[in-house]
Design a protein around this nucleic acid. Sequence first.
RNA 1: GGGAGCUUAGCUCAGCUGGUUCAGAGCAUCUGCCUUACAAGCAGAGGGUCACUGGUUCGAACCCAGUAGCUCCCA
Length: 885
Amino acid sequence: MEIPKTYDPKITEDKWYSYWLQHKFFKSVPDEREPYTIVIPPPNVTGVLHMGHMLNNTIQDVLIRRARMQGKNACWVPGTDHASIATEAKVVALLKEKGINKTDLSREDFLKHAWEWKEKYGGIILKQLEKLGASCDWDRTRFTMEDDLSEAVINVFIDLYKKGQIYRGVRMVNWDPQGLTAVSDEEVHHKEVNSKLYYVKYKIEDLSLALSKGEGEEWITIATTRPETILGDTAVCVHPDDERYKHLHGRRCIIPMVNRSVPIITDDYITMEFGTGALKVTPAHDINDYNLGVKHKLEVIDTIAADGKMSEAAKFYVGEDRFTVRKKIAKDLEELGHIVKVEDIKNKVGYSERTNAVIEPKLSMQWFLKMDKISKPALENVLNGEVKLIPEKYVNTYKHWMENVHDWCISRQLWWGQRIPAWYDNKGNTVVCKTKEEAIQKLKGINSEVKSEDIRQDEDVLDTWFSSWLWPISVFDGFKNPEGKDINYYYPTNDLVTGPDILFFWIARMIIAGYEYKGQKPFSNVYLTGIVRDKLGRKMSKQLGNSPDPIELIEKYGADGVRVGMLLCAPAGNDLLFDESYTEQGRNFSNKIWNAFRLINGWETAYTKQTQANTIAIRWFEAKFNEQLEIINDLYSKYRMSEALMATYKLVWDDFCAWYLEMIKPEFVDGKSLPIDNETYDATIVFFEKILKVLHPFMPFITEELWHLIRERAEKDCIIVAEWPKPSGETDEITRHFDVVMEVITNIRNLRKQKNIPQKEQLQVFEKVNQGEVIKTYDEIIIKLCNLSSFEYVTANVDNAFSFVLKHAEFFVPLSQNMDVAAEKERLAKDLEYNKGFLKSVEIKLSNEKFVANAKPELIENERKKQSDAMAKIKAIEEQLAGLK
RNA sequence: GGGAGCUUAGCUCAGCUGGUUCAGAGCAUCUGCCUUACAAGCAGAGGGUCACUGGUUCGAACCCAGUAGCUCCCA
């Protein structure tokens, strides 16, 4: 059968993925082996695969596959998140397209639509993960809103309520006027924007006092970026020490348009330098103002409704959007003579992470989880390294957040999600319990007259993260069945791989839940990937259109190529600047491996005696492989994935293909390849299998394909479950010898190139050993790789030959062409100069008493060696120079 | 405003507790090769005042201080 010259992923990927599935290689059940567990960061059920998923799922799969090969019971649990806000927004939009308004639907009808939609389009992303080669145990696929997981969420809510950790109250929350829900602090992103700072003057009340002093009208000027909130002002505040305003302490001023009289209060919270040093106070629409309001017992006038439009309480512009009103009121105030000036400034504005609407601080009744006590173990155990964050720099960020954590607003004014299990009667009593029946019982205990129809459940649902924080426990049914086999075996999980953007949303909270409900960490290591950006460092986004479609990339370069491309540009802990050229490099690498196979596969074997060159080549590669494997293992243990990949890449491309295979490759005689001796062939197959194994976590498909092509296999003899190679531990000095041999070869090749000697022309090389013993073991290899007619040893310099000097030996290459003596002299002189300079620097070091006194002995020894080497080299060059006529 | 981190070759990055011919890798570039595994390849080469300034040290890319620029997080 003719094997194509290039690797074609299309004919292998689907084939092997279904083969793996069919043989249940991804499946994990508890057994006596050591478990290795990862829970997937559940993507939004409505989502499609983007480059960020691509990156972290590739890493997870690499970790899982390697663990599986190491003989661990590898379990990767997949699943999706119901993502309340995002999904509800999508369903609302979809219904709107059909001409249906959410407000016209009952809760039940809406949820019916939502579920239908979820069943139809949800989980596309999981199918896409299969294309990538993700070896998840699909039988364990979970969804955060399935019955068992929802039950866990409700139970946890009830439990925390009973423990007094959850409370309900009116607080200033971040209101998303588009999503029409409260969101948590973490869901607000602050962006710097260009704004205008309006200076508005308010008239001081009690004019008579001023007039009596003959001062005329008095004003106080405030500065604000949000003039539309003026209608809700209930005070003006100045710093108590501010000389400019001391005469106004205790007086009142008039809010323009609404003509409300409000007090002028003092508080040292005020920054005197900002604006005019006088702050308008709107307790309903700013968190700081709210705090001032509480402190100074100010009236709260809520002038902006839930949808971001002015409310009745505003009295003006009722029903108009806050941003329209901002412009209008500025104009109207101008006409009324209240605007003193307008400045351009930059300030930070909060945006909703989900809808990108400008967040409105708003007072509302919400449910909160107290964070102070519950978060303590989660902080401690990250600080003491029980849970490791990789890279470590995130520990600082984590610590800072945990030490300043605010209560978590967990209620959302949505329907898609777990409904809050709180029940109210008509008298304002509240009970928290699972079912209406229980609620009736409980409420009757408080209010004996209560009727079932008077009882209603809280309309809100819980924050999505209030379900996903339980993920590492709930996917193993740890709430439903706390002593179950699964939870006891797989929990705590090993590694979590995700982006730093959800460090607080999710990671921190999972750690909290882990300690609260299992008394144990949820995972030992958190690998935080960078953010995938484009070549110019911009975040990938739909708007910019700079995000490639991962599935298209896979079609173009193959899943293995894309995986390699992804990891090549993913330095540990840094953002990665993705470019398609990396996936191209990945594809080229696939092809290289493919062709190494084609070479080996094409060989005929014979029972001939193994040449010395082949014996040496095998010994060398064995040693090299072990040396590199240790390095690769070490890099894995430090989660330095891109470096582990690069080490693997070089082992395969450089050491195996460029050196080893070239060394043992049989010669061509009369247009036919000579057969290779059996012993070498067998060793090469074993090497190739080892190479495939270390490649497998990165490139699952091509390695599985070649695993089966290189040798006949039993049905279940697959590389996916093959044993990860073990380093033999032998450190052979052959690799050190070989470094010198390689240098000799490179020098000869370089000479050939410089002198324009065709590849086919054979050369003679003479070696003159100046120091140490003569090692002839490698001569055959040099002859082969440099196409030499002979390699001989001499004791005197060879005249009329080009030469170069390595450690302890000189090499001479006589050429048929005439030597350009002047040029050769110049080259040698340059070399001489460099070596003399080097010797000098070594000697300066050695003659420095303080160096000799302070440096480590082996270091000094090394310097001495450098000195003698350099002197020998200088001597050799000088002799050669003298020999040139 | 507070905090964290970064700045090394054209690009993306390594360089652990200062000391090996220590200034590295991959890609890109240049030169020569269509050599019967692979041109998605082979062979070879050129590229850097380690952001800047000062300090500590026998010795600094590495430690300290300051300056500039960039990024992220928090309020």
